[in-house]
Design a protein around this nucleic acid. Sequence first.
DNA 1: TTATTACATGTAAACAATTACATGTCAAGT
DNA 2: ACTTGACATGTAATTGTTTACATGTAATAA
Lengths: 176, 176
Amino acid sequence: MAIGTLGHALLGLLAQRECTGYELTRTFDESLAHVWPTKHSQIYPELAKLQAAGLIRQSGSGARGSKTYAATAEGLEEVRRWMRDTIPSESVRTERMLRVFFLWLLPPNEASTYLREIGGRHRERLARYEAIAAIIPSDDPEDRMGRIAIEAGIRYESAMADWASWAVEEIAKSAS
Amino acid sequence: MAIGTLGHALLGLLAQRECTGYELTRTFDESLAHVWPTKHSQIYPELAKLQAAGLIRQSGSGARGSKTYAATAEGLEEVRRWMRDTIPSESVRTERMLRVFFLWLLPPNEASTYLREIGGRHRERLARYEAIAAIIPSDDPEDRMGRIAIEAGIRYESAMADWASWAVEEIAKSAS
DNA sequence: TTATTACATGTAAACAATTACATGTCAAGT
DNA sequence: ACTTGACATGTAATTGTTTACATGTAATAA
């Protein structure tokens, strides 16, 4: 019963503060899904697995049948070991970028439309990330790592938005 | 027997030129794996599926039992339809970036080590992509889209390498 | 001639992720 | 009283992905 990436991510969130499965699901949807998409249908069974492995424990229960989980000492140990001693997979999977390799299949105007659309999505996310970054107090040491994580998002979205604009122009250039 | 993203990617490659399963595997390993990792054990059954669906046909056979496949008219139609009429999944999955959210679990010096290491990997790939971009003749319209795809890689790796360096300094700042 | 490496294709088992199904609670507004 | 929406947790079936198993060919170098 080995713990995978999702299990370690849940452990990492529960190391910060105790949460219900629902709260974990929302945290994934709101921020972690940008780097590791997951559904509640995967989270709940994974929590059961982590509990069975003694890495988390149910620390309480609230309204509407909600259950609060907290990381155990073993769980904290395990997530630290994962961060320290294991090599992250290099693999990145993104259908949006995959399709760029096949843009030559479309007439130039449709390729441009595709690029403008993905540029727009990158700009949207960039705006959202910048708004989040703006409200993180930069002097609080607790939030410093959070600021570093969001900065990665900002730079990524910004670079990809610029790239998309550049690519549209590049296509326009050769069409003339 | 619906065709998924991998099937469309194979169709896209075969739309460009006929290939053996082995060649397709190598193309994935060398360039497409950066956006859509796949193993030969998934490629061969997928080719069989595409052939059964009439989207590709075996166009020849060579040494060592190799089989060459080519896209059929229906296959070309299908991959164009996919590019034009379907919305790409927004999902991106990257364990490297996921771990950034849990960097606070490590002492600052270990977090810095992690960031330096991933910065190094980004710089490595950046150098490789730049070398590839340098040998693409920029005036050949055939390669224009290839140049656009590699530019995305260059900007991505460059942005992430810069981010990693910035993050290391950010941690150093607060440690003092 | 023999060992190694790259070429070449497959299948099976295990694991991970998505989609669909299924149920029920509680609060707020109408 | 009723409806809607957010809260809350699960399971089942399907699909996608990885790892391990399995086999054989051709070229090159020692």
